[in-house]
Every structure is written in C-alpha cells, then in structure tokens.
Design a protein around this nucleic acid. Structure first.
Lengths: 145, 145
DNA sequence: ATTCATGCAAATCGTTTGCAACCCA
DNA sequence: TGGGTTGCAAACGATTTGCATGAAT
C-alpha cells in the first residue's frame, strides 16, 4: 500500500496522514507473516522511527483496525496481537496453533459455508464473520514424536 | 457433580478439597448458561461465601481449567470469562455472538470434521481442539430491522 | 505435623488517558 | 489558523504475587 493510498483512506475517515501511522503500517507490511504484539510492533517501529511513543502505537493500531487494514488476534497469551488484513479477504482466515512448539500457520480456505447455513436454519442466526482457531500438532512436532 | 467427585478429581491432581473451591464450582453449575467474568463469579460466590477473596476466585478458576472442569472464553470485552465444560464434550462448542444486542448462543454441533481432514491433508496439521466464534445478527435483531 | 490454600494488600503489567506541544490540512 | 495527533507521565484496571494465618490430609 502506497503512502498515497493510506492518505486517501485516512481522509475518508476524517483522519490525518502522519509519519507515525505510515511507519507502523509499513512495518506490518514488512512482517506480513507475523502475529506481533503491540510491544513487538513498538520495538520494531522504533528502529526506523526512534522518537515514537508507545501510546501512539496503541492508538495507531486501534485506528488501523477501525479503518479495516488490520485485525486483532487473540492467542491467549495475554497480549493483543495484530495482523494485516489481506486483500480480497472477506472472512477472516483461520489459524492453526501447535500445542507443542507454538507455531502459527494460516488456513486461507474458509469451508464454513455449510455450517453457517445450518446455523441460519437451526438458530436463525445470520453469520457475517467468524474467528476460528485450531489447536493441535504441526508437521514437525508430529514427526519428532 | 457431587462434593465427593470433586474431591476425588482434586486428589488425582494433588490438590486439596476446600469450601471455596466447592463454592465456586457450585455457583458455576447454578449458572450453566452464563458466560461469567471473574468479577461476576466473585460477586455471585460472595452471596453464599462472603469471606472469599477475589484472588482465591482467580486461583480457583485457573485450577478448574487445569483439571478440565471449566474452560476460558474470550469475548473481546477485556474480561476473561469462564464456562463449565459439559459432560461428553470432546471438542469445544461454538459461540454465536450478536453484533447488535450482544446475545451469546451456543452451537453444540461440531461439523468441522471435513475442514479438519482437509487441514490434515494440506497442512499436515493434526487438529485436536478448536475455538470458533461466529459474529452476526440474532433472530430478534434480524426481525427488528 | 506437614503441606497446601486463603485473604489481604501490595505489586505487576498491558493499556488508556490528560495535557501541553506539535504538525497536518 | 485550527483541530487532529503526538509523546510523556500519570492513571487505570484486571490479574498476580508475597506473606502470615488458617485449614486439609
């Protein structure tokens, strides 16, 4: 995402473009694969923008979630974690979490349509998003045992 | 669950049976349907056991999760919430969360087997548990609009 | 008798907030 | 210029911990 695109998106929501916001977002693009906590994001952004305050990072992450560029992730470790929302992603992807080594892998396939249809029929509940985490053993840990 | 059953289970894990632990668990049985925060559990337990301290409630909930009687729930509201694990529940049930009124409903059907099989084939990841939350509109809110 | 559990208060720690200085539009 | 934004430090709030007392085995 270019500076200009970010600027336009911010303007749509009535926010201003700043170097800090740009620095946080750029850093997230450099760690596409990561599921970073606020502290980790703060430490990484400081490398290119040493004056940034941690409250700015907190505020920026809330803002990026609000404008739909980032989503919050909960891995039950007491930290809020964040990841970029990929383009063309309508539903959130799923996460595989290895109970042994902690590895996190993503599953882009959705495959919940049948379940969501059944929920509509039986519970009269109309699903429009979901959060799915699978816990188990990754390939490495399985072969190690 | 009887006092005796709890006592036995605690002994298996090397823990002692106490009135406080019993009071917290009994209280959860009286609110089978609830998804209570630690503070709410503390307030409710105080009605039958006024001397209990909140740190005992925190410690007891961790213990009940550890011995498999209770599971932690994350509803993104800044509180840890807890619910009893139902008998014969191998996988966790799913939660429906209404974006409009906040209602929480449970879905006992699993229906993730096909997806978990595909994950085993494509990601070589062996799933043994999952956490699934669906966000959307409940029946009441849908008819209100 | 020994070991573990409790209750209280203090400490911890991630996160939020008040505010003066600052910067984008 | 004017209002959103920042960085700092202080406040907050849920949770954890140290410790002396108390209860369970």
């Amino acid at each position: 995402m270019s500076d200009h695109e970010l600027k336009e998106l911010l303007k749509e929501y009535g926010y201003k473009f700043t170097e800090q916001r740009n620095a946080v977002l750029s850093m997230l693009f450099e760690h596409m694969d990561g599921h970073l906590s606020t502290e980790e994001i703060y430490e990484a952004v400081k490398k290119t923008y040493p004056e940034i305050g941690i409250s700015t990072v907190y505020r920026t992450l809330l803002l990026l979630v609000r404008i739909g560029l980032v989503s919050k992730l909960d891995l039950d470790d007491g930290f809020n974690r964040y990841e970029l929302v990929k383009q063309n992603e309508d539903h959130r992807h799923h996460h595989l979490i290895c109970n042994q080594c902690g590895m996190i892998q993503e599953v882009q396939e959705d495959l919940l349509n049948a379940l969501e249809e059944q929920i509509l029929l039986k519970n009269k509940f109309l699903v429009n998003d979901h959060r799915v985490k699978f816990y188990g053993l990754c390939e490495n840990c399985r072969s190690r045992n």
